[in-house]
Design a binder for these strands. Structure first.
Lengths: 219, 219
DNA sequence: TATTCTACCTAACGTATGTTAGGTATTAGA
DNA sequence: TCTAATACCTAACATACGTTAGGTAGAATA
C-alpha cells in the first residue's frame, strides 16, 4: 500500500517560474516566513475545525497567529487558497496515517485486521492527531465548489485505500451478510466521521471505539 | 412508544397574551398569513439543507418565497428564530416518523425488527421526506449556541427513543460482541446522518440501505 | 362609508467581511 | 555602507449581511 506524496508539496512542486512571488516556494522553504506561514495554517486548521469555514474570519485567524488580516495575503492569495492548503493537508495526513497503520501490520494479517487498523488510524487522526483532518471533514461541505473540485483528486485517492480494504474484506467473506462493499465503506466512514459531533474523552480512546465498530462490520 | 407533541405547537401554545403581535398564534392560524409563513419555512428548510445556515441569507429566503428580506420580520423575530422553527420541526418530524414506524410493527416484533424499522424511518425522513430534518442535521453544529441550547430538549427526547431501542437490542443479545449500546447508538446515527454527504438515487432506496446497516449492527 | 388591521414594501443603518493599495521597519546581500 | 528584498502594517474599499423604521395598498370591521 503506498502513499508517496508529501504533505506540503514543496519538494515536488518547486516553482517553475522564477518570478513566482510565493516566498515559500522559492528556495525550498529556508526563509523565516515559513514559520509564520505554518503558524497561520495551524491556527486556521484549529478555527476551521472548531467553528467551520464560513464562521471563521481572516481577522480571527490573523489575531491568533499574531498578524493583521491583510498580512495573510503575503502568504496566501485568498481565504479560499488558505483553506485549500489546510484541507489538502488534512486529507493527506489521514491518508498517510491509515496507509502507515495498515502497512505496519504483520504481513500475514488478514483483511479484517487490516480494516481494523485503518479504522483506528482514521479515527485517531480525526479526533486526536490532526486539526487539519477534522477541519477537512467539517468544512468540506461548506467550502466553495471550486475548492471542492480542487480537492476531489486527493479525496479519491484516499477513498481508493478504503475501496481496496473493503474489496479484500468482501472477497474473504468478512462483511455482514447482504452488505455490499460500497455501503460498508460509506457507512463505516460516516460512523467514524460523525464522531466529530459527539466525541469527548468520556467515550474512551479512539482505538477502542474503532475496535467496537470493527465488530459490527466484520464477522 | 409515544410522541404526543404537535409539530407547530400552535394547539398547545395559544397565546396567553392578547397583545401578542404574532399573527399566527392569535386565532389558531386561520389567517391568510399562515400560508406565507409556511412558504417561508419550506423555503428556509430547503436552503438550509442545500447550503447551510451561515451560507443562507434572509434575502435568499425572501426571494424564493416571493418576499423582501425585511418582510420576513413580520413572521419571525430574527433569522435565529426562523432557524429555530425549522430545526425544531425537523427533529419533531423524524421523531414522529420513527415512533410511528416502530409502533406500526406487529406487537410481537423483536428488538432487531424494531431497530430496523427505526433505521429505515430515520433514513427515509432524512433523505426523502423532510428538508426540515436534513436541515436540522446539517445546520445544528453551525447554528448559534443559544439556539442549540433551545433545541437540546427536543433532541434529548428523540435520543431517548434510540436509547430505548438499543437497550432492548442489547438485552436480547442482538448487538455485536463487545459493542455497548452507547457506541452502537452513536455509530448507527452517525452512519445514517452522514448519508446526507453522499446519498443519491444510484445508491438504492433508503429502506434497502437501512436493511444493510441493520445487518451490521445486529446478529 | 369611515376606520382599523393585515401583510407586506422601501430604504436605510450599522456592522462584518474578503480584499487591496501603499507604506515601513528589519534583514541580507553587494 | 548602500541597496534591495522580506515580512509585515495601516487604512481603506466594496460588498453583503441581519435588522429596523416608516410607509402603504387592500381587506376586514364598525
Amino acid at each position: 500500500m503506498r502513499c508517496d506524496e508529501t504533505e506540503t508539496g514543496l519538494t515536488q512542486n518547486v516553482s517553475l517560474d522564477p518570478l513566482n512571488p510565493d516566498p515559500a516556494a522559492r528556495d525550498g522553504g529556508a526563509k523565516r516566513s515559513v514559520a509564520s506561514r505554518q503558524q497561520i495554517l495551524d491556527v486556521a486548521a484549529k478555527l476551521f475545525r472548531a467553528r467551520g469555514y464560513t464562521e471563521t474570519s481572516l481577522r480571527d485567524i490573523g489575531k491568533r497567529a499574531g498578524l493583521k488580516a491583510g498580512s495573510l495575503y503575503y502568504h496566501f492569495a485568498s481565504k479560499e487558497e488558505l483553506a485549500a492548503e489546510v484541507l489538502r493537508i488534512g486529507v493527506k495526513r489521514v491518508h498517510r496515517a491509515v496507509v502507515a497503520a495498515v502497512d505496519s501490520l504483520d504481513p500475514t494479517a488478514d483483511a479484517k485486521a487490516r480494516l481494523g487498523a485503518a479504522m483506528a488510524a482514521h479515527l485517531e487522526t480525526l479526533l486526536d492527531a490532526s486539526d487539519f483532518t477534522s477541519a477537512h471533514i467539517r468544512c468540506f461541505p461548506h467550502v466553495p465548489e471550486t475548492l471542492r473540485a480542487q480537492l476531489s483528486n486527493d479525496r479519491r485517492e484516499y477513498e481508493a485505500v478504503w475501496r481496496s480494504l473493503l474489496d479484500a474484506a468482501a472477497t474473504s467473506g468478512a462483511l455482514p451478510p447482504g452488505m455490499d462493499q460500497n455501503a460498508a465503506r460509506l457507512f463505516i466512514l460516516g460512523a467514524l466521521n460523525w464522531s466529530l459531533e459527539w466525541y469527548d474523552v468520556t467515550h474512551g480512546r479512539p482505538a477502542q471505539l474503532a475496535r467496537s465498530l470493527l465488530a459490527a462490520f466484520t464477522r
